[in-house]
């Protein structure tokens, strides 16, 4: 049900990827995402596929966890693929009514779809191998320079980690309230749109009430422990780069360089 959301779902196994510094993984993800947009040649996609497959293998996270995140973007994926197939001008290969599928469109749609799928898998891979706490720690440290232009990096990072921490709690809470109301005969799955929207009230009201209660409890608990923002705050686990991180960075740049190069390979082939 709602448990299918992969973002923020850590998969606890021990692997090289899990042990990497979160900053390395962030950088890796960003580089991977950029590389998907840099390349447009089959060679580039083959390379990206190999790298992705390799990292998945190294992470020891079962493949079916990666694809879970895809369900959420299924509609976007279908829309963009069909738009590309039918709206790209070129040689017609299939005609359905006024819709014309073109060869160019098909190729474009294929790449487009692949790009979207890899985007989701790439970012799921990061959240599956990094705990939310590590992730925000990494973000906070990588973006610290923004402090100078007046962006409250620590506060934003804290809000993010709290939000992330609360996702599973709220999911669980939703599940619980849903069950409690189902036990009272509520029906969330049938009826027309208006009936369904109405059926959400017994779920949403208690959920909001409990979210506010939790927020206020948490604020109180933080104040009781003298939280006063990021100034002068030390870390229990300060982030430090290890050899494996340096190797990872090196590999990332080699990969990015190859992906950029793949653009030119294509020009020479055609």
């Amino acid at each position: 049900m709602i448990r299918d959301i992969t973002i923020g779902q850590y998969y606890p196994v021990d692997s090289v990827i899990h042990r990497l510094d979160p900053r390395t993984k962030l950088a890796g993800t960003v580089i991977f995402l950029i590389s998907l947009f840099v390349t447009s040649s089959p060679v580039g996609y083959v390379l990206a596929t190999l790298v992705l497959a390799g990292v998945i293998k190294l992470s020891r996270v079962p493949f079916k966890f990666m694809t879970r995140g895809l369900r959420a973007i299924l509609i976007v994926l279908l829309l963009s693929v069909s738009f590309n197939i039918f709206l790209t001008p070129g040689t017609t290969i299939l005609k359905i009514g006024f819709l014309r599928a073109t060869k160019e469109g098909l190729i474009l749609a294929g790449f487009m779809g692949l790009r979207l799928v890899y985007l989701v898998i790439g970012s799921s891979l990061m959240t599956l191998t990094t705990t939310p706490t590590q992730l925000t720690d990494g973000l906070e440290k990588s973006l610290r320079f923004l402090n100078r232009v007046g962006v409250p990096v620590h506060d934003i990072a804290m809000m993010m980690s709290i939000a992330l921490r609360f996702i599973p709690i709220l999911v669980e809470e939703t599940d619980k309230i849903m069950k409690a109301q189902t036990a009272r005969g509520a029906d969330f799955d049938s009826g027309n749109l208006i009936q369904r929207a109405k059926a959400m009230i017994p779920l949403l009201v208690p959920l909001f009430v409990s979210a506010f209660r939790r927020a206020s409890d948490l604020a109180m608990a933080m104040e009781a422990r003298c939280y006063h923002g990021g100034e002068g705050r030390t870390k229990m686990h300060p982030l430090r780069y290890e050899t494996r991180d340096r190797i990872a960075y090196l590999l990332m740049f080699v990969y990015l360089a190859l992906m950029i190069a793949s653009r030119f390979i294509r020009f020479r082939l055609f």
Partner: peptide, 30 residues
């Protein structure tokens, strides 16, 4: 579910109606 009633832990978190009576009526009406 009408035959087997289940009261969850901390059931007060499932209250949602504007007044007590209407809230209790939710089950029978369902």
């Amino acid at each position: 579910r009408g035959h087997v009633g289940l009261v969850f832990q901390y059931p007060e978190y499932q209250l949602f109606e504007e007044d007590v009576l209407t809230d209790v009526m939710f089950g029978p009406k369902n």
